[in-house]
Amino acid sequence: MQYTSTFAIAFLASTASAAPYNQAPGAATTLTTITTPAATPPATAPGGLTLTQQLFLADTAVDRFALLGNEAFVFDFNDPEKKQKGKGGRGGDLVVANRKTHPALVGTGSGMAVGFLGPCGFNTPHVHPRATELQIVTKGKLTVEMVPENGVFNVPGDKTSKRRVIHADVGENQMFPFYQGSVHTQFNPTCETATFIASFNAEDFGAGQVVDEVLAFQDDIVLSAFGESFDASQLAAMRKKLPASIAQGVASCIATCGGLEKIGSANGS
């Protein structure tokens, strides 16, 4: 399309008339950009909304920043009050940074956890329903295992072979990925405390302990799932002895490290 001189003059005239015009007659016309400042959400919201809820309701990321003071961006994994008391088990502790414990994560699509596994500490088989975990060992070493989805066999494509269990020993500054939805576990085979850092591609990654979830079904379902290899009375006993997510495991390790009493003292329990 070719602009005519008449069209160009009309276009420029309409642009000039739309701009603020405060100049004296004969002065050059100045175009002024007018910006409206974004509304700042209140520090507290009616109805007792949590900070995480307020951040979710904020219209823009700019508005979210207005709700967060500088100190709100720092998360202290050393704070003992942040440990998941009662969930870490006798063999260790977890400190979890998700969008509830650390609201500044809202909008990032990321989360993190730091784990402390005492001597012979065992993080029982579990899944993360909404994220893949990238775990790096920062102290000591861990023995890890992961079971992927159905159809992954020791011999690819051979349904008569056993389901594949991916096993590895992970040392300091080494990483292992646990895929979203995979059943996995970590074990500290040493007599010293091991620590790890885990990153997640979700603000609310979640966790489900597999054995605990299975045993939560009605008795007849559980017994049928295990081929009725035990009876209802044994099932009740199993439920009572069910460990927390990080338990003390593997009898040989416990014996090597001086028994439960010594290990419990080392773990602070």
Rank of each mutant, 00 (worst) to 15 (best):
M238K: 14
S233C: 11
S229P: 10
D212R: 06
T138W: 06
Q23I: 11
E172L: 08
T40C: 07
A251C: 09
Q84T: 04
F153R: 10
A255N: 12
E261N: 09
T30L: 12
A236F: 13
Q218Y: 13
N123W: 00
K82I: 02
V95G: 00
A244Q: 15
V214T: 03
G107R: 05
I197G: 02
A207W: 07
T190P: 11
S229G: 14
S161Q: 10
T15V: 07
D169V: 09
T193V: 04
A237E: 15
P148L: 08
M238S: 14
D93W: 10
E133I: 03
G111A: 14
N201S: 11
Q53A: 01
F75E: 00
A104Y: 02
I221K: 08
L49I: 06
V144W: 04
T40K: 11
L215Q: 05
G89V: 01
V155A: 12
F176L: 03
E133G: 07
K159H: 09
G118T: 12
A202V: 02
A251T: 15
A39Y: 05
T185A: 00
T108S: 13
G118L: 12
P177R: 12
T40L: 10
Y21M: 12
L68V: 00
P129G: 07
P46N: 06
R99Q: 14
S182A: 08
F116I: 13
P125E: 04
L12H: 05
N201F: 12
I221T: 10
T35A: 10
S14F: 07
T143Y: 09
D169G: 02
T35I: 10
S17Y: 03
H184R: 03
A225I: 12
L55M: 01
T4K: 04
F73C: 01
A207C: 06
I9D: 11
Y3W: 13
D231S: 15
G157N: 10
T30P: 06
